[in-house]
Amino acid sequence: MAKIKPSKGSPYARIMGVGGYRPTRVVPNEVILETIDSSDEWIRSRSGIATRHWASPEETVTAMSIEASGKAIADAGLSPQDIDGVIVATVSHFKQTPAVATEIADKLGTGKPAAFDISAGCAGFGYGLTLAKSMVIDGSASHVLVIGVERLSDLTDLTDRATAFLFGDGAGAVIVGPAKEPMIGPTVWGSEGDKSTTITQTVPWTDYRDGAVERFPAIMQEGQAVFRWAVFEMAKVAQQALDAAGISAHDLDVFIPHQANMRIIDSMVKTLKLPEHVTVARDVETTGNTSAASIPLAMERLLATGQAKSGDTALVIGFGAGLVYAATVVTLP
């Protein structure tokens, strides 16, 4: 048997930079109320959402990704040529093949990076981050661009009073590169496919093509079941991620949960018994739920507004359709 040379990577990985893009159009609850029988007070009390951004036809998945990625690359002090891996997490890019990651990589002016898309719903960013870390440590890439991007307004049923107000559009990106010490902790992740119907696309595309349904598919969810799982099961996963990183909640500076709903965030904070000094991302109020984009968008905003700073220790947790989840502790860039 021939001896195969092992790959050589960096001992550890870190997030080197972050960038975000929010579409220009800000949509207040009043616009949502044109198509559902509800009220601003009801929407705010059930979700904490006051406004969200909806993309214009020009603000495509690719265009938003390029904006966010450019900022992340600059924030990392790199140039596009330094990027040799591109991972895009999304559920709302409507061209199945080729992967949108390749187009984004090309338009950014990177060389010939490994580029691919992943589908892990609202946990997509955590899944991408974990893959990127592994690539850097393995040595199969040195600087990986991880993008979470969604145009969920395309998958929203504006007549469904349970979800019409929830979703928003946007892109968030980070660069994962080499580090001398651990700056991304072990990932606690998994899936619970037995709960696949709690958050799901209404019907397959083919049903729509074949005329089996009149309405373009949308995302629907069982609110109470999702809430229970997100708050109580995900609090356990968050604790496991802290344990895996060898730290306690008292060591945390920042908590960045997936921005699903303010009620979920508030209840998670309570269940986790987070100390008061921990800054909690509450970007959902003005961004809505942007699925795979929500964590990097919230991270970028916390850093940009000075609510968090470089070097802070943050717990990030994504959870959503699958059901899938991913949690890890990171040092902020």
């Binding site: 059930r46 609110g223 109470q224 809430f227 229970r228 708050v231 109580f232």
Partner: peptide, 11 residues
């Protein structure tokens, strides 16, 4: 007690 608080009560 709204639908989400009801979940907290139940748990």
């Amino acid at each position: 007690v709204d639908s989400l608080s009801m979940v907290e009560v139940v748990v």
